[in-house]
Design a protein around this nucleic acid. Structure first.
Lengths: 207, 207
DNA sequence: GATCAACCTGAGCCAAGTTCAATTCAGTTA
DNA sequence: TAACTGAATTGAACTTGGCTCAGGTTGATC
């Protein structure tokens, strides 16, 4: 059931990676709707129709970006907060990991957050729908990552008992809400954000 | 400076309110991009071009909905958590007020959250830009509502001292993150959400 | 140097938002 | 009641941007 999409293996001439990178820049800075698909082509240095060799549509590209970012987030969580770690420390590590990202990854998070609603409705075309379903599964995985962490903490007595589902969603919501306003060029360094949110999460969950 | 937009006074035949209501339904359930502007017209019972008598563009209508929702949120906060109240109780009241909403207002919050990014870049047309600027101002007002509450609590010794700006944004982020996933028809009643978040906010801020 | 698949392009199609000149309607004035 | 006014509405045409299609180029492999 958990069908992780097979990444098309890159032929030596393939511009797929370049397109994804350019699209992340454009979508992240200008916004998805506001950026013309042809602009992405320009930036890569190909004609606009060449894009369709790699992606079925502009939206298909967006969904791919979102899925890749979700995969990254999930992997990073798993690595940072193994099931064996002590709950409070695992929680802290997971939050820190969530903010240990490059500028490019910040853009990806922003894109992901700004278009979560795309994942609710079904898509018409095959490949888009495949990406959407994969992304949805990953969203659930990430949510489960956090709730599991809470459930573990609660059953071990490290956290007071509460609705882990709801609290997990809230913690996650708190963490990702940052990507709406955070700008690498802004006045607040990400390290500061990370520390404040880390503390806030611990208080929220472990008090 | 604070140029509250003058609401066009409704002629007796005006369909402005009906259009806004229909648009909230459509945009909230189907999504802004996914709903055809002409569908809104149909639902109101007018031709699509008649819409342009009331709104300069589909986006202008969206921005108007967002601004109205922001005004509502700000007003409700002010009413629920007056500057005179005891900080912890004011915080609790403000959170409860944030979730004391009708189904229609849930849709408006969802629309607002899903299109916050529209407020960052400038718009080309006059009226759209006016709505955008007004909305931005209201966002800042609402953020100030929350930070002021925190600052007051901190200076009165009810809350430990922390970066009120950042913490305010986080509290707000936590609260509104709910509108991404909450559905009135879903399994979790809003009252339950409200209680959990209320507790979480107090722990986050007052611990 | 023939072959094949990956890769790319110019020309044009189409859907949806938008513009515009012309028309209807409801209330007001004479 | 006839003329007038501005709000409200419309059908038809225009614009933009994503997308399709029918073919052309490139380069690795044999």
């Amino acid at each position: 059931m958990a069908t992780r999409i097979v990444e098309p293996e890159a032929g030596p001439r393939s511009k797929r990676a370049a397109i994804l990178a350019a699209a992340v820049d454009c979508f992240g800075e200008t916004g998805f709707e506001a950026t013309k698909w042809s602009t992405v082509a320009e930036r890569v240095g190909i004609g606009q129709t060449a894009l369709y060799h790699y992606f079925e549509s502009k939206t298909h590209c967006l969904l791919t970006i979102m899925r890749l970012e979700l995969q990254r987030s999930h992997d990073k969580f798993t690595e940072a907060a193994p099931d064996t770690a002590e709950p409070v420390e695992a929680l802290r590590a997971a939050v820190r990991a969530a903010y240990d990202v490059s500028d490019h990854e910040v853009l990806q998070m922003r894109i992901l957050q700004n278009h979560m609603d795309l994942l609710s409705g079904p898509r018409k075309s095959k490949r888009e729908e495949a990406e959407r379903v994969a992304a949805r599964q990953l969203v659930q995985l990430v949510e489960r990552d956090w709730t599991n962490l809470l459930v573990r903490g609660m059953s071990q007595g490290a956290f007071p008992l509460r609705d882990a589902q709801l609290l997990g969603a809230s913690v996650l919501g708190l963490i990702v809400s940052v990507w709406r306003w955070y700008r690498p060029s802004g006045p607040t360094p990400l390290s500061e954000v990370s520390e404040l949110i880390e503390g806030a999460c611990v208080r929220m969950v472990a008090t």
